[in-house]
Simulated scan of single mutants.
Amino acid sequence: MEAHPILFVAGLLAGAMNAAAGGGSFVTIPAMVFVGLPSVVANASSTVALLPGTLASAWAWRRDFTSFEGIPLRTLVLISLGGGLVGAVLLLVTPQRAFDDILPWLLLAGTLAFAFGRRIGEALRRRVRIGPGVLLGAQVLLSVYAGYFGGGVGIMMMAVWSLLGEVDIKAMSAGRTLLVSAANAVAVLCFALAGPVRWPETLVMLVAAVIGGYFGAVLARRVPAPWLRGFVVAYSTAMTVAFFWRAWA
């Protein structure tokens, strides 16, 4: 029971971060590992806990969904569903010890994507323009990553889409929420059926994340976006360092 207050506070913070800037999984996974859950179980449980907030965001953006470069959004959703399933299955067959070694690198990849993804995308856009085929291939890989871990995947998607050219930011934000939701939803179904989810801890964090998501949206209207992103980068960097220390020590 003593773990529940920690998970509730972590859920509040993660929900607020996702609503305001993103990066909630950088809070939920470390918190679950901290209270004693194995890292694979913590990853799966975190995905379940954060799904309602992601679905709510997708619903809020529903009027802005659009296709990219002539690729129907339905095609990208189907790719995301398939990739999310593959990523979830890969997580379930990854040995616990191996995932303990991989997790710090996943946190590092997510942190770098969150910190520099948009700027890298903007810099590359001035030199590179990709076509629909590359976009589809990238979406396959990103969807698998979303089902397996997912930290920073929304930023990665937007960075790739920016290479198409001048894509409306509202359209990218809407597409990101929908495709991440699709990948996460099928991963959650897989995790629920396969049984690696710790439901008591997950439900505590899920309720807290919904509450935090509401207040995070309110906070996002009052606090400058660079401050919010700076907090997420600082926090995720600290968690990445801590998990590298844990793996090596």
Rank of each mutant, 00 (worst) to 15 (best):
L124Q: 07
G121T: 08
I120H: 07
L228T: 09
V223E: 12
T111P: 04
V33C: 14
L178P: 06
D168E: 12
V241G: 08
G117P: 11
V188D: 01
R127E: 06
L178Q: 01
G216H: 06
L7A: 09
D168L: 00
V9F: 14
V128S: 02
L189C: 08
A171K: 09
A60D: 14
V48G: 04
I130L: 08
T54I: 13
G84Y: 10
F68V: 11
I79L: 14
V77F: 05
Y145F: 13
G83R: 12
L92R: 12
T47F: 01
L55V: 15
L112Q: 01
A209C: 03
P30F: 00
A21R: 07
M239D: 09
L85P: 10
I29V: 15
V186P: 05
V144D: 03
Y145T: 07
T202A: 05
V188K: 02
G24I: 04
V86L: 15
W59K: 12
R229H: 12
A123N: 12
A192S: 12
A171T: 05
R126M: 13
A49P: 06
L78D: 05
L141A: 15
V153W: 03
L135Q: 03
L92S: 13
P196N: 12
A182D: 00
L164G: 08
A42L: 08
E201L: 09
L7D: 04
D64R: 15
A249T: 04
A31D: 06
L78M: 14
D64C: 13
R126P: 05
D64K: 15
Y145L: 08
R118K: 14
A208N: 03
T66R: 15
V180L: 07
T28N: 03
V48H: 03
M172Q: 01
A192H: 07
T75A: 08
A88Y: 10
L51T: 01
F244Y: 08
G87P: 13
P30G: 06
G154Q: 02
V188E: 02
A225L: 13
R74N: 01
T47I: 06
I79F: 11
G154D: 04
S181G: 06
R222V: 11
V167L: 09
A123C: 10
I102L: 15
F243Y: 00
L78W: 14
G212H: 00
R63I: 13
G131C: 04
V86P: 11
G117N: 10
L189Y: 00
G110Q: 08
F68S: 10
V93G: 07
A123V: 14
T240I: 02
S25K: 00
A49Q: 04
P226Y: 10
V207Y: 02
A88I: 12
A192F: 13
A88L: 13
L106R: 03
L193V: 15
L91T: 02
A3V: 03
S80K: 09
I71S: 06
L108S: 12
V77N: 07
M158N: 11
M157E: 02
L228G: 02
L91V: 00
V40P: 11
V233Q: 11
